[in-house]
């Protein structure tokens, strides 16, 4: 685990220029900026009653900023963790990994730990940019915020492992990851309450652990939202754990499928 953490940090520092870091923030900054303009210029600084009813708060900018930060966290973490093995496959190092007696889970934990440290910096900078744009976030409950961070990490890792297996089995990453990102952006309630969705879409969203992690995060950061975070926290852990177990069970056959493909090539 430690070895993979150090390896990934070294590779990150050497491989990615600072402009890449700016690029990763662009989506989040743009989301907040456009919402800010719409809120001030079109909405006149007010939100509709339906929004307040759905969220329990009238702080639209806080809602969007937390959602954009969460979306940045989730997409960046998925990109790191889910793509770890297909990157090894493409770069020709998957075989040398699989030749060793090392287990998969510590490897994935190492990748996750490094991804967390990188993504935390990105999210912090994003929140600082939002603050510079005039967004004022309320001070969160530290315990619930910690629970939200744990929930978000479990949710993301849980979803990333089966996604990693899918990528390896299919031999491609872009279609798989972009399908997930689009589904999450629409279904999980990052920038609007899930109650706005049609019932079928809402049910799909409920099946994703990220939706529940986001509820814990809202409870920690949204003023006036008198929501008990712990049921959502528990559901998130159970769902994330279930995804992780499924992922760990389908990863070895996916690895073998990838090796079969390269053996036949």
């Amino acid at each position: 685990m430690g070895a993979t953490f150090v390896r990934n940090w070294r590779i990150t520092l050497r491989a990615y220029p600072w402009t890449y870091f700016v690029g990763t923030l662009a989506t989040g900054v743009l989301t907040i900026g456009v919402s800010l303009l719409a809120y001030r210029a079109i909405g006149g600084g007010r939100v509709g009653a339906s929004f307040t009813a759905a969220t329990g708060s009238a702080d639209y900018l806080g809602y969007v900023t937390v959602g954009a930060a969460a979306l940045t966290f989730v997409t960046r973490m998925v990109l790191w963790v889910a793509k770890a093995q297909i990157t090894e496959y493409r770069e020709g190092t998957l075989e040398s990994q699989l030749l060793t007696p090392a287990r998969r889970l510590p490897y994935l934990v190492g990748v996750t730990a490094q991804a967390l440290s990188t993504t935390a910096v990105e999210v912090t900078v994003l929140v600082a940019v939002a603050s510079a744009l005039g967004v004022r976030l309320s001070v969160p409950d530290p315990l619930v915020l910690l629970a939200a961070m744990v929930a978000a990490t479990v949710a993301v890792v849980g979803m990333s492992v089966p996604l990693s297996a899918l990528m390896l089995a299919a031999g491609e990453a872009h279609i798989t990851q972009n399908t997930l990102f689009t589904a999450m952006a629409l279904l999980c309630g990052f920038t609007f309450p899930t109650s706005y969705l049609p019932a079928a879409a809402r049910w799909l969203g409920e099946a994703l652990p990220v939706t529940w992690a986001l509820r814990v995060l809202r409870a920690a950061t949204l003023p006036g939202a008198d929501v008990d975070p712990w049921p959502a926290f528990a559901v998130c852990l159970v769902l994330g754990g279930a995804y992780l177990l499924v992922g760990l069970s389908i990863l070895p056959p996916a690895e073998r499928r990838a090796l079969h493909r390269s053996a036949r090539a």
């Binding site: 070895a3 993979t4 050497r14 491989a15 770069e91 020709g92 190092t93 075989e95 040398s96 060793t100």
Partner: peptide, 26 residues
Amino acid sequence: VISGGERMVYDRLTARENLWYFGQLY
């Protein structure tokens, strides 16, 4: 296993870092 013509090592790491990493995996 030693294969000719295969990558098997990390381009962004140095030789020492590669060997250190694989040593830990073993």
